[in-house]
Structures are given as structure tokens and as C-alpha cells.
Amino acid sequence: MQGRADVAVLVLDQVSRDFGGLRAVDRVSLQVARGERRAIIGPNGAGKTTLFNLITGELAVTSGRVFLFGQDVTALPTQRRAALGLGRTYQITRIFPTFTVRENVLLAAMGLQPIKFALHRPLLSNGPIWRRTDEVLERVGLTHRAETPARALSHGEQRQLELAIALAGDPRLLLLDEPGAGLSPVERQLLYALIQSLPRTLTVILIEHDMDLALGLADRVTCLHYGRVIAEDTPDCISKNEMVQQIYLGSG
């Protein structure tokens, strides 16, 4: 993996994470190329979310190393990884409930800009942060809800906002943790169309329970089971993979 660290946006080298006696992520090695759409599938408790937390630094690895954009970030705190161009959404919505929808996105859009330390003036409504916010709201289809308090949104809209917050900082690598969680089939279709429409300069890693959705979107699929990578392949081959079939038939 040393050889490909320069082209790969993300490299995981034998990454593990223990919770007490439980090994939630077990020696996972992984490479994701620039512009790739990668799906991570696996049954409940397979360690998918934990893997995301290791990539973002929200959890520390027990062993192994994490490379982002060719740089060893294993020891970097989360905000420094974000500054490199990493963004994520959460399986359980993490918005700012008392903020308006616009404020949610404004806060996210200025996270990497020096203006976040400005004390004396309000944000200009014709400034770059505001424009970026308008753009992102437009993209996720929340423009008409901009002045609504986030806690007053429907669940579906909150999931859209969750994505908007992650997009606002203009990341190069986006981690999506079950973006469709709790959505109706129709809402989910719309959200996936949205994800599909994201520019190819953006690398996306997506956790998804639903095999069909995952396979429809991804260039490559990684299947996790008990913290281990048991298969990694193209969508076609993954759906024919015996071990994967066993896990998915066996568990549900």
C-alpha cells in the first residue's frame, strides 16, 4: 500500500479497534481511489460505523495506521482531518436543533474558514460563506426551509440537512453512514439520486444495509463481518460471492 498511497484518497493499514474484550474492527486494510464510489456493507454490529470513527479520528485506533490523501493522519485530531478535506454524515442525525436550517449550514460552511473567529460583525449575506450555504441548500432541496428551526423539520428533511452539513465544507472525501436510515422508500430513492449526482471529484464511501441500493451506486463494495473484511469486489461479483450471500441470507 505504500506504493499506492499517493493515488489513493484513503488507505487503511491493518486497522483495529477494541472495546474492552470486543474487537469491533479487526485488522482492516483498505484503499479507496480518488473519485471512487465505495459501499461498505455488513450485518448489524459488523463494525461499519466504528470503522468510520477510526477514519475520522472520533475514535482512536487500537493498532494500525490511517492515511488520508497520502498523509499519515493516525495521530491527527478530527478537526485537522476535516481540514484536509474529510466530511461525514452520521447514522443517527446530528444537527443543531435550535439553529435554523440556514444557520446549520452556515456553521458547517465556515468551519474551515478563518472567518469563524470573527467577533465584530455578523456574516454578510452576500459573502462567500452565505453563497456556499445557498448553493448547498439548493442542492439538497431545502431552500424553502432555510428559515425553519432544524428541530421542526420532518425526519426526512433532517436527513437532507445532515447531508447538507457534511457537504457545506466542500470535502474531497465524504463518508456517508446509512444516509437513508429511517426514510420511506420514496424518500430514499430521492436521496440516492442526490448522492448519485454528486460530482466525481468527490470520493464517497457509503455504509448501506440495503444490498440493492449499495450495489446500484458503488464502483466497488467491501463486506465487513465481525470487524473483518471478508470480501471486496465489484457489485456484480459481490452479489455472487458465496460468503456474502451466506451472511445476508443467514442473518436476515
Binding site: 485530531p77 478530527t78 446530528r94 443543531f96 456553521l107 468551519g111 474551515l112 469563524k116
Partner: peptide, 15 residues
């Protein structure tokens, strides 16, 4: 106010 509302989300936004 972001810290007050949802401190855990802030680092991932670059804060």
C-alpha cells in the same frame, strides 16, 4: 452556540 447545541458534531466540521 454550535458547541452548546451539538458539541460532538463540531470537530468533524473543522472546529
Amino acid at each position: 452556540r454550535g458547541i452548546r447545541d451539538n458539541e460532538a458534531r463540531m470537530p468533524m466540521l473543522g472546529y
